[in-house]
Amino acid sequence: MSSGEPRPVIVVGTGRCGSTLLSHMFRAHPELLSVSELFSFATDLGGRIPQAFPAQPITGAEFWQVVGGRHPRQNLLLRHGLRMPEVLFPPTGSDDMLARGVPALLLTTLPHLDDQPEPLFDALEVALSPRPPALIGDHYRALFRSLQDQFGRRTWVERSGGTLRIVARLVETFPEARFIHVVRDGRNTAISMSQHVGFRMALICFSLLELLGVDPFEDPDRSEIDDLPDDLAALLPEHFTREAFWSYDLAPSLCGHYWSGEIRDGVAQLPRDRTLTVRYEDLLDSPAAAITRLEAFVGLGAPNPAWVDRAAGMVGQGRSDWRSLPPAQRDELQRACATGFEALAAHGVDYER
């Protein structure tokens, strides 16, 4: 990277914190390549993190299986009609493609950039698969550079839901990057997680892994299946149904504990000298001011008032409100989020509690 180029930026958060809005804002900027959900779907909703960030060099063909592979969790959801709102491809009614499986890059990353993503996918495979062995960061940079050249953008901003859990890997893989940490009141975040297809699936998979001792999407071992309660056994890939998925009881308080853990562990690993923390609530209350801070942090040089105005026009209002819960659930959720709020306060981010 030459001294005249702005440094790349990675947006991180717990998920359900408002970061998707930033992807749409950055896509509207004429100098920024907005890379959306690359790490979320390359890791298959967090289930394939070691494969997406190996320590040893890998070939271009192996890298292509990371970003262009048809991974099991997301494709199982799609085959059962469980589609995250962030997923932009394939079009409704594409039964043949759903049966084959949708490559990770085609779910959101490429259709977020181009309304004809399949030819772009094919061209990237031709360009990236022959690459010689290299560290994973170099392969990702080659992908970003190819997309920058395609769309004429100066630098890239990657934003995936739930990447606070992999901050350490991102900091190590991209030492040149700066970070935007988007944070939202954990109580509202937890409610949103409990209702979101992707986070329900991720938390179900964590429970299956803990009780089985193996990842049931990657390993056929079922020797510990007797340890599974009936509601989780019904969500093994060989038994999975849409009805069992929505019937599984995922209380907001459980999501609150998850949020607290992600905040506690992730915030401590963010490099303070190259991180900007943005509260979702501030983005809602004073969009122009918050977006101006974002633009200055990205460091493109001269301000772009037209972009700030356009981005501010994208801001709506959050839908979750923890205060609407019954008192017992509200108190339980409050306790579940306490550790996360304490961790945020220790880093100068305060919420009324």
Rank of each mutant, 00 (worst) to 15 (best):
Q74A: 13
I58A: 13
A142R: 09
P130K: 14
V102A: 01
H71K: 12
R141T: 14
T92S: 13
H80R: 13
M84Q: 15
T155K: 11
F151N: 04
F53K: 08
D115F: 09
F151H: 03
T43H: 11
Q65E: 09
P103L: 03
R131F: 08
P50G: 06
F53H: 10
L78C: 11
L98A: 12
A61E: 15
P85C: 12
Q148A: 07
R73P: 07
Y140Q: 04
F39E: 04
P57T: 12
H139V: 05
I58S: 12
G81T: 03
A99F: 09
L105I: 00
R159T: 00
P57C: 07
P91A: 10
D96A: 15
P111N: 00
W64A: 05
L106Q: 03
D44P: 04
R83Y: 06
G93S: 04
V67Q: 02
V87C: 14
L107A: 12
P72D: 06
A42H: 01
P117L: 07
L88Q: 13
A142K: 07
L88G: 01
F89Y: 15
A55M: 08
M84L: 10
L98E: 09
G68V: 00
V87R: 11
L120K: 14
T155I: 10
D96M: 13
P130D: 13
S94N: 06
I136D: 08
V66K: 01
L106G: 00
Q56L: 11
G101V: 06
T155N: 08
F89P: 05
D138Y: 06
E86K: 06
H71Y: 04
L128W: 09
L113G: 04
L143E: 03
Q116Y: 03
I49K: 04
A123Q: 14
Q148E: 10
P103T: 01
D149S: 11
L135A: 11
G47M: 14
V67F: 02
F39D: 02
T59Y: 06
V126C: 07
P130I: 12
L88T: 01
T59D: 07
F41R: 08
H71Q: 12
S160G: 03
D138A: 12
L113Q: 06
S146L: 10
N75E: 01
V102F: 04
V157L: 04
F151R: 00
G68Q: 01
L98Q: 13
L106N: 00
G47P: 05
G69F: 03
A134P: 10
T59V: 06
D122S: 13
P132M: 12
L110A: 02
D115L: 11
A52V: 06
D115Q: 15
P119K: 09
H80W: 11
